[in-house]
Design a protein around this nucleic acid. Structure first.
Lengths: 195, 195
DNA sequence: CTCCCGCACCCAAGCGCTAGCTTGGTAGCC
DNA sequence: GGCTACCAAGCTAGCGCTTGGGTGCGGGAG
């Protein structure tokens, strides 16, 4: 009963999606199992037929997002630096649409979650993402595509933060599509805002 | 007794600082009054001699930061666009050092806090900050200092997020001073990262 | 100088409440 | 008849906060 992994029951997936919206809106810790139950139309105790803890629900949400992101990123990373950077930024915005809830939770409660043994893989994922971006930047600087006076570490943090924090105001149904938004950002990032 | 304002007792100020560090590390909601008491070397109940609620501690932290920030911003806003933008960015980084805890809490729990009646002033402050930045950007675009194809609203969010979210990794004692860091950021923001 | 009172500061104990989670049982479907 | 999905009821731990009382110190009256 209550397998932590596997068993991709449709109901189980539904419940993850329902909980994800609440986690994103109110925060993971501020969302109670009774909230989740109400939103799903069941009593809070009934959730424990599907999951053995509230953490398990979050785990399923986060790990599935990170798996997909890293898979896509590994493919993009091989390309020529400017193309790769455009790809990383565009993919980040695209993922904002599909995984808004997961990204929001990660943004707002990353430091807390990393203190939980169960979510140790968050640090590993962060490290790989950082490695991919900084490699692209370093290659681009060496190849003369990016400015030579850039610090790859600072530039990475600047780009990563600028893009991902957009989850706070990004809406899937907004007036700009993820691709258009990525274009606006790339315009500023690549060429600056000076006339 | 237990005046919410006034009476700037030294002990009271100490307690705010102690609580601020915990709020920043573990989050406001995840920090219990017992944690604060432990860190301060008193029992949790003793905190209520100084403050009438946990919210009051946070309020004192946030409002004092916002007061200072807005005062400085109003002065900067008058200058010529590029100078003003440089000033806004530099001041933001400078405030990261002095008000790291307050900014961290605001970044991580802004949406929750805004739902509390007591913290309605956060929305007002946000509005004024937005007004100041977008005015600078709009003036700069009209004056030909910034690119004409920029959307002021998107550009503002991009800049604001990029700078403030740096609180997640910025350390007062890091290898770069706030001013040096602001220079690095301004280099990327104004002229882009392309060679 | 002494006495004592008021005040700032804190302790000890516990209240009411809600959190995540458990347990035993049941309705319906293959 | 077993399996999935759920209910009804309630457990324990920990939350923010209260209450009544104690301690040391500074300052005015005698």
């Amino acid at each position: 009963m209550t397998e932590t992994r596997g068993k991709p029951s449709a109901r189980r997936a539904d419940l993850v999606r329902i909980a994800a919206e609440l986690f994103a809106e109110r925060g993971y810790r501020a969302t109670t199992v009774r909230h989740i139950g109400d939103a799903a139309g069941v009593l809070s105790g009934s959730l424990y037929h599907h999951f053995d803890s509230k953490e398990t629900i979050l785990d399923e949400l986060l790990s599935s997002y990170l798996d997909e992101l890293l898979t896509t990123y590994r493919e993009i990373a091989g390309a020529e630096p400017v193309t790769a950077l455009r790809g990383l930024v565009t993919e980040a915005f695209r993922s904002l649409g599909e995984h808004r809830a997961a990204i929001t939770v990660l943004q707002n409660e990353r430091t807390y979650l990393r203190s939980l043994p169960r979510f140790g893989y968050l640090t590993k994922a962060d490290d790989e993402v950082r490695r991919i971006w900084t490699t692209v930047l370093r290659d681009g600087i060496e190849a003369g595509a990016f400015r030579a006076d850039l610090d790859p570490a600072i530039t990475y943090r600047f780009l990563r933060d600028s893009v991902w924090v957009a989850v706070r105001w990004f809406r899937q149904d907004g007036r700009l599509s993820p691709e258009e938004l990525a274009e606006q950002y790339l315009k500023m990032i690549l060429d600056g805002i000076t006339a």
